[in-house]
């Protein structure tokens, strides 16, 4: 695997939108060609080389390309959007849409990420060491088919609207989650290792949620049916098992209704 290192050498006045910082866009290009890739600041198109120094070289294919982004990227959006393969490492905090609509490969953010990271995700792995903002792994606005696959791992806390309309894939949150987890969910798994504030699994049809801590305001539409022993993320523990959302429609399988499952550590 070959590595391209981008270093942000000056801060934009507004924000940079860099949807072409992906192994897909970089593969097979020389550093000069990479520096000529266009990024946006507002309505202006600017060559990537105006803001980033480009070192190293890209592989022949996305799978053979690793991108390291250095410098303070708090005002850089959309890195790794729609990437299909390869690897991106972001050394600092980063702004919105990291790994949005990604289909494969790996993104590792060593700081915090702002909102909308991993929205509309279909595959691959997105790792954020720090906190993430709102709408982690959620569906884009108006889209009722949300995250389809892949894994998102957040080390710290997340904001609200995690995994809205989730259909598949896994989201693991190391810290606490604000309101709305897996709202309208139709599949997939969300694991919250800390506490959840409320509205966990509202309007959820199918899928699973695990909460290791407490839920401050549990919804009335979830009913406890049993206490079970589960091995989740390498932790063996007793969980209270709830089914729901009993206020929502539920399909039938072999004559039996299919519910969403909420497990709260007993």
């Amino acid at each position: 695997m070959k590595t391209v290192t981008l270093t942000l050498n000056k801060q934009p006045e507004l924000y940079l939108e860099c949807n072409d910082i992906t192994p897909d866009a970089f593969a097979g290009k020389t550093p000069a060609e990479i520096a000529a890739i266009e990024i946006w600041e507002g309505k202006q198109k600017i060559p990537l080389g105006d803001f980033f120094t480009v070192e190293g070289s890209a592989g022949a294919t996305p799978a053979e390309t690793k991108i390291v982004v250095a410098g303070d990227c708090t005002r850089v959006k959309r890195i790794g959007q729609q990437m299909t393969d390869g690897e991106i490492v972001i050394e600092s905090d980063v702004d919105m849409y990291i790994g949005g609509w990604m289909k494969g490969g790996t993104i590792h953010v060593k700081g915090n990420a702002d909102s909308f990271c991993g929205i509309g995700m279909e595959g691959g792995e997105l790792i954020i060491d720090g906190d993430a903002g709102h709408h982690v792994g959620a569906a884009p606005r108006g889209e009722w088919r949300g995250m389809k696959g892949g894994v998102i791992r957040i080390g710290g806390n997340v904001g609200n609207d995690t995994a809205t309309f989730i259909n598949g894939g896994t989201i693991v949150i190391g810290g606490d989650a604000d309101i709305h987890i897996s709202t309208h969910g139709e599949g997939g798994t969300v694991i919250v290792k800390g506490n959840a504030k409320g509205r966990v699994g509202g309007q959820m049809v199918k899928g699973e949620i695990y909460v290791f801590g407490t839920i401050e305001n549990p919804l009335p539409g979830f009913k406890k049916i049993e206490t079970v022993e589960r091995d989740v993320e390498g932790v063996q523990a007793q969980f209270d098992h709830f089914i729901g959302d009993l206020g929502e429609r539920h399909p039938k399988s072999k004559g039996q209704p299919v519910y969403a499952h909420l497990y709260v550590k007993a």
Binding site: G198, R199, G202, D245, G247
Partner: peptide, 23 residues
């Protein structure tokens, strides 16, 4: 701030399911 929970309770009882004593 708990309107969502109350809607959820209404929807649950409209479907004939039970809810806690207070929502």
């Amino acid at each position: 701030g708990q309107d969502y929970d109350l809607f959820n309770a209404f929807r649950t009882v409209i479907r004939g399911e039970d809810i806690p004593d207070e929502v």
